[in-house]
Amino acid sequence: MKFEKVRWGIIGCGDVTEVKSGPALQKIGNSELVAVMRRTGVLAKDYAERHDVPKWYDDADALINDPDVDAVYIATPPSSHKEYTIEVAKAGKPVYVEKPMALNFTECSEMIAACNAAGVPLYVAYYRRALPRFLKVKELLENKAVGDVRFVSTKLYQKASDNVLDSKNLPWRVQPEIAGGGLFFDLASHTLDLFDFLFGPIKDVQGFASNQAGYYRAEDIVTGTYRFESGVHGIGSWCFTAFDDVDVNEIVGSKGKISFSTFGNEPIVLKTTSGTEQWRFEAPLHVHQPLLETIVADLLEGSSQCSSIGVTAARTNWVMGKINGWSL
């Protein structure tokens, strides 16, 4: 599947598309955002006017079947990812879907099957795979900066945000029927997918998930252990009702250690017997853009530059489901 120019449509032009992703579709060469859709038409119209998008819809089918739309970016919560992905695939158009890929691994498998049957590519918005910050970590590993990797560890702790204290107006990210789980599903997915990118698939998983604070039904604390096919071991703890904010990953090898955060801009730190080195990176304004550039290149050239596809993203859903026990 090759295009001379990729004309995009967005389903669900909410906050994530305002800066992180939407404008990038206009800035990449031979890429254009031509249509957007929200169920509330006035909001779709407002978005289109502010971002100079020629068409807007309040009906997803109308956007999907618009002959001027070549590829569709699904930027809705996970509960509708499967439905929209299958519809886009039936229309014969490439899919770029937000993360997490779906509510559970079963839905991911159905999405992959639909796109395979239609002969269209399926991409998933794990954009950290293409950011220079994390490509530096991959480079250090490939250059054996820490020798042979033994294990990886993750700590992600956050204070309970004010919006989860109002039980009558909970954000969708802590409603399992919409998000697939709680904040673990939304946030840990980034780190677990990144580890898949760095070390390959995880093959064995064990974990515990609980709700300790009782602000909502979904899990608010998760601990897990896992083993990669490569033999690397991993441990992780995620708590979303802690007293402080912590975000740190460590990769420990036979000759050194790499430390970095998933969501912050702290420097990447390499410690070995030779000393300590650091590298700082500023996130691009449109954080999806580096990954989207690989997707557009694939669609223009018929290549396979993008590393975040349905098969890899489904593995992350499988791991999260095994750890937290909410969705398998």
Rank of each mutant, 00 (worst) to 15 (best):
L63A: 12
A71I: 14
A89T: 01
E110L: 09
A113I: 00
P94D: 09
Y73G: 06
K99W: 01
P100C: 09
F105L: 11
I112D: 11
T76A: 07
E87V: 10
K99Y: 02
V72D: 02
V53H: 13
V95L: 03
A75T: 04
K90C: 07
A60L: 00
A71F: 10
E83Y: 00
K93Q: 01
C108E: 08
K99R: 08
S79F: 09
Y84I: 07
K90S: 05
L103Q: 01
G92F: 09
Y57W: 06
M111N: 00
Y57K: 15
A75I: 01
A60C: 01
S109K: 03
A102E: 09
F105D: 13
S79A: 08
K90V: 07
Y84T: 00
N104G: 05
K82T: 07
A114Y: 04
V95K: 02
I86Y: 03
P78E: 05
A114E: 04
A113G: 02
T76C: 06
M111R: 01
D70G: 12
K55N: 11
A75F: 02
E110V: 00
A113L: 03
S109R: 03
A60H: 00
M101H: 04
L103H: 00
Y84H: 11
E107R: 09
I74L: 03
P54D: 11
N65P: 06
D66A: 10
M101V: 06
G92H: 06
H51T: 11
H81P: 04
W56S: 06
H51D: 06
F105Y: 14
E83G: 10
D61H: 08
V72H: 01
A62C: 09
E107T: 14
D66Y: 05
E87W: 05
D66R: 03
D61N: 14
S80I: 04
I112M: 12
S109I: 01
P78N: 06
